[in-house]
Design a protein around this nucleic acid. Sequence first.
DNA 1: TTGTAGGCGTTATCAT
DNA 2: ATGATAACGCCTACAA
Lengths: 345, 345
Amino acid sequence: MSKRMSGGAPLRVTMDEVARSAKVSRQTVSRVLHDNAYIAPGTRERVRKAIEKLGYVPDAVARSLAHKRTYLVAAVLTEFAGYSRARILMHAEEEARARGYNVFICGSLSSPKGEPLESPLLNSQKYEGVLILYRGSVDDRFALFKQIHRDVPVVTLGYAPKMPQVRRIVLDDRGGAYRAVKLLLSSGRRTIAQIAGPPGRFDTSGRMQGWREALADFGIQAEERLVRHAQWTPEAGYDQTCSLLNDYDGIDAIFAHSDLIAIGCLRALNEYGLKVPHDVAVVGFDNISIAALLTPSLTTVDQPFAEIGRTAMQCLIARIEGGDVGKMSRAISAELVIRESTTVS
Amino acid sequence: MSKRMSGGAPLRVTMDEVARSAKVSRQTVSRVLHDNAYIAPGTRERVRKAIEKLGYVPDAVARSLAHKRTYLVAAVLTEFAGYSRARILMHAEEEARARGYNVFICGSLSSPKGEPLESPLLNSQKYEGVLILYRGSVDDRFALFKQIHRDVPVVTLGYAPKMPQVRRIVLDDRGGAYRAVKLLLSSGRRTIAQIAGPPGRFDTSGRMQGWREALADFGIQAEERLVRHAQWTPEAGYDQTCSLLNDYDGIDAIFAHSDLIAIGCLRALNEYGLKVPHDVAVVGFDNISIAALLTPSLTTVDQPFAEIGRTAMQCLIARIEGGDVGKMSRAISAELVIRESTTVS
DNA sequence: TTGTAGGCGTTATCAT
DNA sequence: ATGATAACGCCTACAA
């Protein structure tokens, strides 16, 4: 347990003081606050004035205790590194705020020194729902889900164990990848390598699946040696592309599972003296903000971050507020954005 | 006010139930929970077992009410767009969690439809401190500070009104910029343009100051027409660079106030047929993760995100826990990272 | 070593 | 239309 020293909030005006000042009971003040109908106009005015004068602000904690609601939602994510998570989070928070909820971050699942923190979710504030933006392997995700109380609504990006309280927002990884690879094939590319995300993840496998299907549609054998796995970073993309180029000759296109990986590819290709798109075409995935302004600008599969974030939060809040959202998962499509990295002019 | 429908948390086991089950008083349970010394070993065991059996978890809200502490800190930031804020936030959260605090996001200061939200900070959960990662103009920041209760500790990135409860983490913008521009000058560049951040911001002016001083040290007149202002985006960087190149001939270096802006510069320069670094050298600011893998890799001023985030949170927590951190502001240095975009080989 | 009483600031319920 | 009283779940202080 961590040290918790003295400190605390400054003294605040309470309802009782307002009541005394307005010469009414506490209840009446509460009623004014909640726009209760049964209140004499004069009384209401008096109370309003007292509130104003004393600068009274209701205590959210006390309210929560009585109410049994916190309007607090936890967002689980270990690394914002990939940019995309941060953007999704931002839009999710926007949606939450507009509906009167606050989002708190449940970040580091391990301490700065490395040891895993004991159930950070359980030790946390009381939350009414959990949004999982966590990018972990299937196993890690299972471990995470076990920490969450079985009655708390959960919305997660990507796949998850089938549990009654869980809903999923699923990007059409397969479809997006399929369209990307098909574009490459249509423009005459035939030896299409792939720098995939880490293995053992559903998004990785979905995108690999799309790659395979597109090749199959063109009657091309999917060769496993054209596949490399990388963390979602430019460094890893660079390393794996080098490895690929060392091992294999004649690659005329690369499908990278993320834009950051693709940036690493571009770098490696350049160092090997290969021109993009002339010698090798490159497609990324995500459509992060710089993709359009790289040289060459990057053809990529657009992940609609705003839609994902908002939809996820809407879904979560709907569950919290008792609505049955029905379907177990909600699909989001991923469209191709064609730019210079695939277009020989 | 936003709609708040039914919903709420699932029923939880309370301390009373544990007490009854262990045949002790509520207080004894509390003592076991707090590792109080005055407890008979047998009793402790019995209570532990009861807690285990019933799956009791203390209610954070009730605890907060009695305790008068929430261990909740608000992080204000309007847009994660610049990546850097997201990274700083991530490290700040890590530090907070390690010390037993939770960070909630106070994002959108305006609703999705555009109207400004009425004091999102006041309407929020009760927080014990505020971390301001907000990138607004001086005026906007003042408006923000007015929303914060005068007794709540605040730590902010960059400059801020001098208020007793406010502490600042200040990056050495001037020094970083100075070193960047000096490098350009040392390598023989003489017509050094600048794509600055939005005007009316202290970081922008600090960096502009560094530019001016470096030029002065080399006896070169700082020409205002070599300066453009841009939002911190690649698009804006691109536009302003084009504008610059249209208006002015003979530019042999550009100092961009952020890496994203620099990416826009690189694009524009490329379209104008200018080679980097041969014809024009480029320096960025931030050292975001892709800077090293762009082609050419980007010379830039490193902003130590981890240090900034952690230091800010440490400072905030120190203030919350009563320690007087002393100094009004804490400086963080920004070192130059030299890469290809300035190095003619 | 353990228990009792009272309070934290609100909301819910019942009474007037 | 307003007020009194009892929760809400925990903690602190004091009593035994």
